[in-house]
């Protein structure tokens, strides 16, 4: 048991027994602390290093091919044109065919200020097919498919479900896997597709939803107040989505609500913990997974 000694009078009240679980470590965006986020280099390196779970993001091209990318677009923050020139205005992946996405752009060759020690490698986007083939060689590595549906910027959940799950089904993976999304309708699309094909789909609702270009601080504060006032309910939201779990940012983690979520039969994942102190603290919480950019040890 670890107790936080805040004040002598309150020390007993601040004691929390260790949860007795051993949360899995997930390599966020393939392991962004190792190599460029969502890159072939990061994902393959994480698999070869034997991480427990590799988390990665999926977006569809215009011809419906799932590629590994966090945002619905390519931009100068992480990518460049093949000739090294800047992209300029965002280029949406839903407007690019696979051939264009892989042939005209390279990503990962721009140093990421958030991860100064990560390798810098310029390479084409990785397709889901390529990732699944790599995963077949590491059947003990779990896969967390984070589905990036954004209304107005990508195809809908049904298109993503068909494109992704048909490939997962065809791959006949031994790897344990689950999907996540921040929209209930995407969870329902995947669960529905799986049910129609006799395929078990395990899902996690990413909560709360942070829309692209939104202020994460504003969303977090709004969520915190909404939950405190009893106007927002994480557990009910996940249950109505039909999700098997909920993934929330560690900044909004509330031990009481996490205990209640697990009592309701939901798995809980926390993201994104990038210091050793945070990983040490939250590894003692009753959660199923900790998502980190440093799956082998944070600074």
């Amino acid at each position: 048991m670890r107790c936080a000694l805040i004040l002598t009078l309150t020390s007993l009240a601040a004691c929390q027994p260790d949860a007795g679980l051993s949360p899995a470590m997930e390599a966020h965006r393939g392991g962004a602390g190792l190599a460029p986020q969502n890159s072939r280099s990061a994902i393959v390196a994480s698999m070869e290093l034997g991480v427990e779970v590799v988390e990665f993001d999926l977006v569809l091209t215009s011809d419906g091919i799932p590629v590994v990318a966090h945002d619905p677009w390519l931009d100068d923050a992480h990518c460049a044109r093949q000739d090294g020139s800047p992209i300029g205005d965002r280029v949406y992946l839903q407007d690019l065919s696979l051939q264009q996405a892989l042939g005209d752009y390279l990503c990962g060759g721009i140093p990421d200020p958030d991860f100064p020690d990560a390798a810098v490698v310029a390479e084409p986007l990785m397709t889901l097919d390529e990732l699944l083939a790599a995963a077949a060689g590491h059947p003990d590595v779990g896969l967390h498919l984070d589905v990036k549906v954004e209304p107005g910027m990508t195809a809908d959940g049904d298109a993503f479900a068909e494109a992704i799950l048909s490939r997962v089904q065809q791959a006949s993976l031994e790897n344990p896997w689950y999907m996540s999304a921040n929209l209930s309708e995407v969870i329902q699309a995947f669960e529905g597709w799986g049910e129609g094909e006799g395929m078990e789909v395990r899902s996690s609702l990413i909560w709360p939803r942070f829309p692209p270009d939104s202020s994460s601080t504003a969303v977090a504060l709004q969520t915190e107040l909404g939950v405190g006032l009893g106007l927002l309910d994480m557990i009910g939201h996940a249950e109505r989505a039909g999700a098997d779990g909920v993934a929330l940012p560690w900044q909004l983690a509330d031990r009481r609500r996490i205990v209640d979520a697990r009592a309701a039969g939901l798995q809980v994942q926390l993201w994104t913990l990038n210091t050793s102190d945070l990983l040490d603290t939250y590894s003692r919480w009753p959660v199923d997974a900790l998502i980190t950019d440093y799956p082998l040890g944070a600074p």
Binding site: A4, A13, A14, D254, L278, T281
Partner: peptide, 10 residues
Amino acid sequence: WLAYDAGSGN
């Protein structure tokens, strides 16, 4: 707050 948050490190 005392029971869950004060010692959370968050």
